[in-house]
Design a binder for these strands. Structure first.
Length: 301
DNA sequence: AATCGCAGGAAATCGTATCA
DNA sequence: TGATACGATTTCCTGCGATT
């Protein structure tokens, strides 16, 4: 049994047609047919039921093909790792980002990656912190932009930037008359927050006073955009990290904003990766490119 | 260098469906 | 019912790499 045999059976399972599977594997149909027959004899099981109506994968075949796909995927990853070892700045990197960072940060560096790291291709995934950390540990992801420092001992991180929190409130609100605003100035308004699971919710809660924490348990927003629109419709006030701030909001939706003066009203953003990840050079290059695209409203030191 | 094993291709063959 | 088309299998041969 060879890796090539496994590719053949995966192709037949995909195409349900020996001729098309052979074409996809760049061999003649008799070659593919012969190799599959030999594999079936070696294993002592029938993988495919051939009939005039077409090809059907047997139950045992389905189990074996599932494992074959894992094996061929693993082989591809091995090749990718080997290629990356020869040139750390080439190949593919899987990058995860949390939802309160992804839409605001990606547009700031994606073009620079294309122009400065021409041989590096980046796969993006947006998800909440816990799932990104799981994916990092399992090897599903190579690096992740997170707003919490690495706790798992297998992970390490590069500090990217720190971003202050801004308070968003309706234009004409009493806070509009103040140059500086702190959470103690938020008296009776509901502080609208993201649903549980979003780290920004916990970070925002950490600077809220107890009465503010108790309100609005029924609201379940999963994006900053939703919170902003709720503020615009008079449902309360909300907090937004600096990178997510953009001029259009305040103008188009009749909102005002102030950077919070509270101590601790900011968060550190990290580029987190596995300690054993062999392509640290690529991670550092990625961190440099991300920092280059940042606005002055966030701090890189 | 000789030998062996194996993958792969070409051609022949087989089985079945379709159609006149 | 025979001709034809299509897809899979079998047989035979070649080339290549590993081993001795």
């Amino acid at each position: 049994m060879t890796l090539r045999d496994l590719e053949y059976i995966c192709a037949v399972a995909d195409f349900k047609h020996f001729g098309k599977a052979a074409e996809a594997c760049f061999v003649s149909q008799p070659t593919l047919s012969g190799q599959i027959k030999k594999l079936e004899e070696q294993l002592g099981v029938i993988l495919f039921e051939r009939s005039h109506k077409g090809i059907r994968v047997t139950d045992t075949g389905k189990e074996i093909i599932t494992i074959a796909r894992e094996a061929t995927d693993a082989a591809r990853r091995i090749k990718s790792v080997a290629a990356a070892a020869q040139d750390p700045l080439a190949g593919t990197i899987s990058l995860g980002l949390i939802p309160t960072v992804a839409p605001y940060l990606i547009p700031r560096f994606v073009r620079n990656i294309q122009s400065e790291l021409k041989n590096l291709s980046v796969n993006y995934r947006e998800d909440i912190t816990d799932r990104l950390i799981e994916a990092l540990i399992s090897g599903e992801l190579d690096v992740a932009v997170l707003a919490t420092p690495p706790e798992d001992e297998s992970l390490t991180a590069i500090e990217l930037y720190s971003e202050p929190f801004w308070l968003i409130f309706p234009k004409g609100h009493i806070l509009d008359s103040s140059e500086t605003v702190s959470m103690t100035d938020v008296k009776d308004e509901d502080v609208l927050l993201l649903t549980e699971g979003h780290c920004f919710r916990d970070q925002a809660l950490s600077i809220c006073r107890p009465p503010q924490k108790r309100r609005r348990q029924s609201l379940r927003a999963t994006s900053l955009e939703t919170l902003i629109n709720l503020v615009a419709s008079g449902q309360g006030v909300t907090l937004v990290p600096a990178l997510a701030m953009r001029g259009g909001w305040t103008h188009d939706l009749d909102l005002s904003s102030r950077e919070l003066s509270d101590k601790g009203a900011a968060r550190q953003i990290y580029l987190t990766y596995r300690k054993q990840f062999p392509r640290v050079k690529a991670v550092r290059a990625l961190a440099d490119i991300i920092r280059k695209g940042l606005p002055e409203s966030v701090k890189t030191e």
